[in-house]
Design a protein around this nucleic acid. Structure first.
Lengths: 182, 182
DNA sequence: TTGATTATATATCACTCTGATATACTTGTC
DNA sequence: GACAAGTATATCAGAGTGATATATAATCAA
């Protein structure tokens, strides 16, 4: 009976850290969960309604004066979250436009593939720098989060940086191979 | 005026290698493009119709006796494919259920995160072995593809293996950190 | 203080994509 | 010739994306 709508669990997980509005959840995804989990408004708001209907979350403050709707997780929601945490995890179906172009580029001139590899390299060099800056700001403790959570966030950033560097290395090696094969 | 439907380009790219039926395209995605590009029947067949309407591809043989519909790329389709090859490439929005669980697991007992990391490691160890086997079969030349295309496919497999190993390394390092932080 | 700009906030839409399933024909093989 | 496995097309509900509409609140310079 596991939900197929993965966004439900993402929202439950965020609300398990702190109560939030739909807007705040979106911001959390775009900052803390950047590179990990993407959410759209077009999915957040209907999902919040669905979760409310199923009593997994509840509306906390309905200030008449305010247009904000702040949600909090319920006991039922927490139970569902734990079930998901311990259940089997599925991999996202792959859709790498870069790799697709790379494979198809064998049908075209060499300049095509070199362009693709240069672009790909630039993307990951850029991302690596971004993650490194973020990691440093975590180490110097600007963000006010618990020690335990900072260990986890550092680990996530380390992973992102490692992945970027692996991709950059592969680009360099592959560009050499392609040039020599000409 | 670039198409948003990325599947169109994937299908054009496959049909640029060889004419194929919808079923054969699906098989190609599940084997050669495994780990790179996912396609579903529910998207392939409508997209083939759309591409035919737009004269990017054409029906090749309509054996009255057969139910097969084999498609080939047209000149217009090839032009569109080239445009896409040279256009800017977009990254797939991230949706890593493993990393999401990992981050959320800081709210739970340590055993949760260790389970997640063990599962994650197992997945990538498994995948790495699969890709290594495939790479060896490429090197011994069982598959009958051109020299040029085999260079590209080897590069893709090398990338997949490198990524798996980076992930495995990260799991090992992170499990150590989590255990020591207890 | 007013007017402009930016940030906050909810909501909806068309479209893309996923995964499952229905249906039917063909090809081995026991 | 029965039965399974593989080939093939098609459709559906629902998940997810990205863009946009709308409106209010905060900030800040002229």
């Amino acid at each position: 009976m596991a939900l197929k709508n993965k966004s439900m669990y993402a929202l439950l997980g965020v609300l398990n850290i702190t109560p939030a509005t739909g807007y705040e959840i979106k911001k959390y995804c775009d900052t803390v969960l950047a590179g990990i989990w993407n959410e759209n408004y077009g999915h957040i708001y209907p999902t919040l309604k669905k979760l409310t209907d199923e009593a997994m979350i509840e509306v906390l403050d309905t200030d008449e004066s305010s247009t904000k709707i702040r949600y909090g997780i319920t006991e039922k929601g927490k139970e569902e979250l734990v079930k998901w945490m311990l259940a089997e995890t599925t991999l996202q179906p792959a859709r790498s436009e870069y790799m697709l172009k790379f494979l198809f580029s064998s049908q075209f001139e060499t300049e095509y593939v070199l362009k693709i590899l240069r672009d790909y390299r630039a993307i990951y060099e850029n991302q690596r720098n971004k993650y490194q800056t973020f990691k440093k700001s975590l180490e110097t403790g600007i963000e006010e989060i618990t020690k335990k959570r900072s260990v986890y966030m550092t680990a996530v950033l380390t992973k992102a940086i490692m992945s970027c560097e692996t991709n950059i290395l592969w680009c360099d090696e592959t560009m050499d191979i392609i040039r020599n094969a000409e």
